[in-house]
């Protein structure tokens, strides 16, 4: 079985125009950085990978994850963890409930609570379980979002410029934490960014997007499912 995330001849087009064409393999613990100016279709690729590409686009090729073809799998069965620019914590749930939402089903209530607490402790947020996510600082929110995603036990990580909203100091901190967690879990990582510092920190393979002119990015206009 081939571990890792495998993009086999993935081509996405809108009308007659090809937005991206990529053929890469990301091994466990490796990082592939996709660089390009904003609006160049980076988010389109992520929408395709998560299965939420708008029907305005045409896509061909295959996506394999840990030896399974997930090209046509339902979004919630793909086991691709994703972090966006915004933390997107569910505003109606407490911090702990956000983590429990991500945590795979199974276990008693007490066991689940213990895992949630342990996850919070791991990122230095002991005792935050009952807090309202809206009262957290930007760095704290980013850490909660990261742990929520990791608790869902993804098989690969997609990062959609997740650090660009953080200020410089925090950015380094959060970035190091994300990469360290991915490395520790031997997860393949696909990082989309337009920031050279992110690329250097990731240290892996780099895929440069052409500076093609692209229309308004409506890649995530279609819902999952």
């Amino acid at each position: 079985m081939d571990k890792g995330l495998d993009l086999r001849g993935v081509t996405i087009a809108k009308g007659d125009r090809t937005l991206i064409s990529i053929n890469r393999q990301i091994g466990p613990g490796d990082v592939l950085t996709i660089m390009g100016p904003s609006g160049s279709g980076k988010s389109t690729l992520l929408a395709y990978l998560t299965g939420t590409l708008s029907t305005d686009f045409r896509a061909s090729g295959q996506v394999w994850l840990d030896g399974h073809d997930i090209t046509h799998a339902a979004p919630y069965r793909r086991r691709l963890g994703i972090l966006f620019q915004d933390d997107l914590l569910f505003p109606h749930m407490s911090v702990g409930a956000n983590l429990a939402f991500g945590l795979r089903p199974g276990g008693s209530r007490a066991e689940r609570a213990a895992r949630v607490d342990a996850a919070l402790a791991e990122v230095g947020l002991d005792g935050f379980a009952d807090r309202d996510p809206a009262t957290l600082s930007g760095g704290q929110k980013a850490r909660v979002a990261l742990m929520r995603m990791l608790l869902s036990e993804p098989c690969a990580l997609l990062l959609d410029e997740p650090f660009s909203r953080l200020d410089a100091e925090l950015r380094v901190q959060v970035r190091d934490m994300v990469f360290a967690q991915a490395k520790a879990r031997a997860l393949p990582v696909l990082l989309v960014t337009h920031d050279a510092m992110d690329r250097d920190a990731a240290g892996g393979d780099v895929f440069l997007m052409d500076d093609v002119e692209a229309g308004p990015d409506r890649a995530t206009a279609r819902p999952p499912g």
Partner: peptide, 29 residues
């Protein structure tokens, strides 16, 4: 409603029904 909430919930393994009942409707209470 921010459809990205739905994307992230699906990436966390929530099916369409769970997204509707556990995320979207409570947010739209």
């Amino acid at each position: 409603w921010d459809a990205k909430m739905g994307v992230i919930a699906a990436a966390l393994g929530a099916g369409p029904d769970r997204v509707l009942w556990a995320v979207r409707l409570p947010m739209l209470l």
